[in-house]
Design a protein around this nucleic acid. Structure first.
Lengths: 202, 202
DNA sequence: AATTATTTTAACCATATGGTTAATTTACTA
DNA sequence: TAGTAAATTAACCATATGGTTAAAATAATT
């Protein structure tokens, strides 16, 4: 029979897929068990409850998604344009490989905003680091704190929204042509950088 | 006792609140009944099933959210800048009054993309109208079909994302200060127009 | 090999949940 | 006002669901 380590990984892989596809309330422990190829009771043996298992996935997801922003943005080795290009490119590419992540995060975080604090702390994204970014970034951009926020919100909006709005956008603007939409996302990488840079110069 | 019309309205009001707050899978018929102040069986008396009731709310929500875009954008009485200003302002204001709508729509539509077609048809948002917008708008902007799409996606992204990303943005950039975030959204209205206009000129 | 600890499962359990039904109440009508 | 139709409810029902338990299978230890 399979080793423990493998079983745990199997469970996490299955849980990740199911939770991200269906969300916390939509996911079923039985479905996770089936997809992991194990008995439902084993889920509870490894992770005490649905909530506990979900929390593991949520933290893991946050850890994958969020740290890239500050780590990149305040790297003094690069010009800001280089940082931005790298971030936008890496971010959109990452989501392309995991297109359901944004909708998942948006939904669960709006459903339970109080979880943000603990989840952020778990991934080492504490008050200190947040403050650091809030201070270093305006300096790099030569902009006020307020203007800097506008740039950040703009960049993130432009990177993330197309994915969560995909079904609607595809219908309205792309005649449901998947290929056309993928091409659009690819071109967007450069476009987003331009839009953000133009905000900085003006 | 209350009149039938009122009961139906009571149910729809409650269903709207609960579904938009919790989503389809998170909502409970009992909760809707409680919030409407009636017996659970009455829900099934008026709307045969949870899905049916949900569909009514989803269509209604789409009808409220989507038609504004084409109706405004192709109005020949206004300059494009005026159309845009009116749209962005109206849109953000509308969401401010209903801040959970975007996350709700995003989640349900990603959960069940095949519903888009029927829902769009229900609200008179058919292929013809979509085609009309796709043709008229590029002319108004003097841009290619592709560039026009970029402008539209940008505008919608910038209007909608701050609301669905609010919990995270507030934590990362606004020190969880609600007032600061509301002020930001207010200023954004003008800002979004500027960003979009600058895309058109260049 | 015998014993002990760990992993896995089958069978349950309690409760939640969407939905139904038959009876009761209210509104309408002749 | 009696009688009929519509609205409303209390009590159920079947199933889904998260979770538990005791036994079986496997692995580790002596």
């Amino acid at each position: 029979m399979v080793k423990a380590q493998d079983t745990e990984t199997q469970i996490l892989d299955a849980a990740r897929r199911v939770f991200i596809r269906k969300g916390l309330s939509g996911a079923r422990m039985q479905e996770i068990a089936d997809e992991a190829g194990i008995n439902k009771a084993l889920l509870h043996y490894y992770f005490r409850s649905k909530e506990k298992l979900f929390d593991v996935i949520l933290r893991e997801t946050f850890a994958k998604i969020f740290p890239s922003l500050p780590d990149l943005m305040i790297n003094p080795q690069l010009t800001f344009r280089e940082s931005l290009t790298k971030f936008v490119d890496g971010y959109i590419t990452a989501i392309q490989h995991n297109p359901f992540l944004p909708a998942f995060v948006i939904n669960e975080i709006n459903q339970n905003p109080d979880k943000i604090a603990q989840v952020f702390e778990t991934i080492g994204f504490d008050g200190a680091k947040i403050k650091q970014v809030q201070e270093v970034l305006p300096q790099r951009l030569g902009l006020s704190k307020e203007k800097t926020r506008e740039v950040i919100v703009t960049v993130i909006s432009l990177c993330v929204f197309p994915f969560v709005g995909k079904p609607v956008l595809k219908t309205l603007l792309f005649d449901n042509d998947d290929k056309a939409f993928e091409d659009f996302l690819e071109e967007r990488k450069a476009r987003v950088v331009e839009i953000a840079m133009s905000m900085i110069q003006s």
